[in-house]
């Protein structure tokens, strides 16, 4: 019993860690003219540093709310800031009148719905949630 307990805990922790790990991808509407973006381009669009896509059309990034697995991974891997740093960054932008943060939707399904009906938006979701209405334009 004494040897099994730590083993169980370790296994549970590994399972928890892997289930919290989402494979996040950036998506656009399947009819969007956008092809692949690189990590810097995605980050610049999500931080309001670029307001357009590479073809010059207006960028409309869609985010997910704090706490969603896709949001957490996107923030860690693509934006490379903690939640608090990200809020601090946006407070600096908002209160200098330089921009407003992307609209936030509550989950993968809502993002897919929005992107599926809006050719000018991009969003990020769990890879597993991707359906035919959208295409992947960046995978970290």
């Amino acid at each position: 019993m004494t040897t099994i307990k730590p083993l169980l805990i370790t296994t549970a922790l590994i399972l928890l860690a892997s289930s919290a790990q989402a494979d996040v991808v950036v998506i656009a509407n399947s009819k969007s003219p956008l092809s692949n973006l690189d990590k810097d381009q995605v980050a610049d669009i999500y931080l309001g540093k670029s307001t357009t896509y590479p073809d010059g059309s207006a960028a409309v990034p869609i985010a997910q709310v704090e706490g969603e697995a896709a949001h957490q991974e996107f923030r860690d891997v693509v934006i490379d800031k903690s939640e608090s740093q990200l809020k601090s960054y946006w407070s600096k932008m908002v209160f200098s009148g330089k921009g407003t943060p992307p609209d936030e939707l509550p989950n993968n399904a809502e993002v897919l719905k929005r992107i599926g009906s809006n050719p000018s938006s991009i969003g990020y979701v769990d890879k597993a949630a991707v359906d035919g209405s959208v295409k992947i334009i960046f995978a970290p």
Partner: peptide, 28 residues
Amino acid sequence: TKNIEIQAGRKRIPLYYFSQFQDVGFAY
């Protein structure tokens, strides 16, 4: 244009790096 904004009204003088958000303690 996609690169140019024209603004009219009351704004903060961007005198220093933090000027535009100098009241927002959370941001510095």
